[in-house]
């Protein structure tokens, strides 16, 4: 019953073999809400307007990541994708990038740092970077921009010194200018109307989200992502994911550093 509810809320399917994961998080939420039995907790969870709904979703999502993870895609971004994205844009035009799900912000901040460091045209366009996740607690952490040593393991000391300040011996905080450059906002990738609020993007990074969905939810999410791309826009999935097994609506683009997916350009455009 709980897993059915979670599936309806998020599209995440927990099958056999996930009992420990589910039980552990359920127990945490029951303790936090002072419900001694499951029936009472479930009634609390499903009460209209209950704040527990978001806490429940937050508890079941997976949030481990680090800076410059899967950097081959960042090389592909500045080496191949962006040139195509801006080919028909005048200087000063918006260039929109969406990191979804962004967890605690490592990916959208990585995109910003990578572009600042590796894309000579970075000052020529109005670049918007948005990080989104279904988990509002991780978005709050992302806005704060404070990370431990492990999250920074792929960054060299020059980048750390340039883009982070160190409030104490164990933590590094993304500098204010960079934090101000990324918008963090919640979204459920299965909710079409929610997704439409974000407009259309030149590039979407959607790594390691679809693997948590069942088949129908994957198709719905794929169509939402397609709709969220500008014609000619690119979708970057995780290295173990393949859109070809989910949907045939994207073009497959093979570049030197990565295979990515593209919403086909409209006739008469790049």
């Amino acid at each position: 019953m709980l897993c059915d509810h979670l599936y309806r809320e998020t599209g995440i399917a927990f099958g056999e073999g996930k009992e420990y994961y589910v039980t552990r998080r359920l127990t945490e939420r029951m303790l936090a809400t002072e419900n001694v039995d499951f029936a009472a907790y479930f009634a609390h969870l499903t009460t209209q307007g209950s704040a527990e709904r978001q806490h429940f979703i937050n508890a079941f999502t997976v949030n481990e990541t680090y800076f410059y993870r899967e950097d081959y895609q960042l090389r592909c971004l500045t080496g191949d994708l962006l040139a195509n994205c801006v080919a028909a844009k005048p200087p000063g035009a918006p260039l929109r990038i969406w990191s979804l799900p962004c967890s605690t912000g490592e990916e959208p901040y990585s995109i910003a740092i990578w572009m600042l460091e590796n894309w000579p045209l970075v000052d020529n366009y109005n670049i918007e970077i948005i990080g989104s996740d279904i988990d509002t607690a991780v978005l709050e952490a992302a806005r704060g921009g404070v990370y431990g040593k492990r999250a920074l393991m792929r960054l060299d000391s020059r980048l750390v010194a340039k883009y982070f300040e160190q409030p104490d011996a164990e933590n590094w905080r993304v500098i204010g200018d960079l934090r101000d450059s990324v918008l963090f906002a919640p979204v459920n990738a299965l909710e079409t109307l929610e997704m439409r609020r974000f407009g259309r993007f030149d590039v979407i990074f959607c790594r390691n989200m679809l693997i948590y969905f069942d088949e129908v939810s994957r198709r719905i999410a794929a169509e939402n992502l397609y709709e969220a791309l500008l014609p000619g826009g690119y979708l970057c999935l995780g290295h173990a994911e393949s859109m070809s097994r989910i949907s045939g609506i994207f073009e497959v683009c093979r570049y030197a550093d990565a295979i990515v997916y593209r919403r086909p350009p409209e006739p008469g455009h790049g």
């Binding site: 600042l116 970075v122 918007e128 960079l178 101000d180 918008l183 929610e194 609020r197």
Partner: peptide, 14 residues
Amino acid sequence: MPLIRKAALLPAQT
């Protein structure tokens, strides 16, 4: 810095 513009969301559809 900041070289990157803060984005804005469209209003929610009702």
